Simulated assay, not measured.
Amino acid sequence: MEQASPKHEQAQPPLERLSDALQEAIKVVVGTHRKPPRRLKSFLNGTWFGHPLHPVITDIPIAAWLLTAIFDIIWLIAPTHTNWAGLGAFVAVIAGLLAALGAIATGLTDWSDTYGAERRVGLNHAFFNACAFVLYLVSFILRWLSGPGDGVAAAILGFVGLACVLYAGYLGGELVFTTGTGVNHTAWEAAGEDYEAVLPVAEVEENKLYRVMAAGVPVVVLRQGEQFCAISATCPHAGGPLDEGAISGDVVECPWHGSRFRLCDGRVLTGPATVNAPRYEVRVSNGQVEVKRASSA
């Protein structure tokens, strides 16, 4: 058994080993393995924003570098009369680089919780974005050394960098629309119109999670004294089973990636999840625990 582990590691593809090492390093930096509330990770995930932060920030460098290309084309057509275009390209490159730092930090944080096909696509996405960043960084240095209105080489590097970032954007679309990364896994859950009996009250112990079905949807129920709470049993982030998670008070932690939700209102407290879990109204009738998806969920 002691000799099997090294052989297994050698058999693992190089990119998989690289991904493992990178993900572990990122998790150390952002505090994935720390105790809740893991504020830095949640901030970079966008939990406070109610939306993944990475796709919001990525619009800025893409727009800035598109403007850079436009300004460079204008300057290349008439370099002696369009110094303003060279200056505009210089400023746009700087804006894109600064915004890209935020996109890198948020993107790597999100990627650190992926696996399988989405992890491989995400690694390629990150690679082409990194190429774009390096090309624009060199382009900025050349513009700074030669002056905003004098830099054919800097403009060419910018065009290549734009091609890289646009292809990286295409791969970002693959992550969302093909592999489902970052998609709310509870978005299409059915909602019954009436209360549905799911458990006999006498069988429900306090401070224990129960997985039940309501309108064909898995729901997790918690009893604390005479109070009952219920939310969807599916973690919105990646579909993890919340009923298998650890509870602390009325908060449950997803066993897959550590997202934390308050069971009485579904509010997400800790990332990587960014949207609340659907809440269920609970009542006791005729000795049965009955649930119905809340209209506000």
Score class of each variant (00 low, 15 high):
S5V: 15
H8G: 06
E9G: 00
P13N: 09
S19A: 14
E24S: 15
A25S: 15
A25F: 12
V29A: 13
G31V: 08
P36H: 04
P37W: 08
L40M: 13
F49S: 12
G50F: 08
L53D: 08
V56A: 14
I57F: 13
D59T: 10
I60W: 10
A63C: 03
W65N: 02
I70W: 05
I70D: 03
F71Q: 09
D72K: 03
W75A: 09
A78F: 11
P79K: 06
A85G: 07
F90Y: 15
V91D: 04
A92D: 08
A95T: 11
A95C: 11
L97T: 09
L98M: 13
L101V: 15
A103Y: 02
A103S: 15
I104S: 09
I104Q: 06
T109Q: 05
S112G: 04
E118I: 04
R120F: 10
V121C: 09
G122E: 11
H125V: 08
F128L: 15
A132D: 01
Y136R: 00
Y136Q: 10
Y136I: 00
W144D: 09
D150S: 13
D150E: 11
L157E: 08
G158D: 04
Y167E: 05
Y170Q: 08
Y170F: 15
Y170N: 09
G172P: 06
T178R: 14
G180N: 06
T181M: 12
T181G: 06
T181L: 14
T181R: 10
G182K: 03
T186F: 08
E189H: 10
A190F: 10
G192P: 09
E193H: 12
D194E: 15
Y195K: 01
A197G: 14
V201H: 10
E203T: 13
E205G: 10
E205M: 08
E206M: 04
N207L: 11
K208Q: 15
R211F: 00
V212K: 05
V217R: 08
V220D: 05
L222K: 07
Q224A: 11
Q227D: 14
C229V: 00
I231Y: 01
I231A: 01
S232M: 01
T234C: 04
P236W: 02
G240M: 07
G240E: 03
P241W: 04
L242M: 07
D243N: 11
D243L: 00
E244S: 07
G245T: 01
I247C: 05
S259Q: 03
S259Y: 05
S259W: 04
R260K: 10
R262C: 06
L263N: 03
C264Q: 07
C264A: 11
R267Y: 02
L269T: 07
L269D: 05
T270I: 14
V275H: 07
N276P: 04
P278K: 12
V282A: 15
R283Y: 03
V284T: 14
V291T: 01
A297G: 03
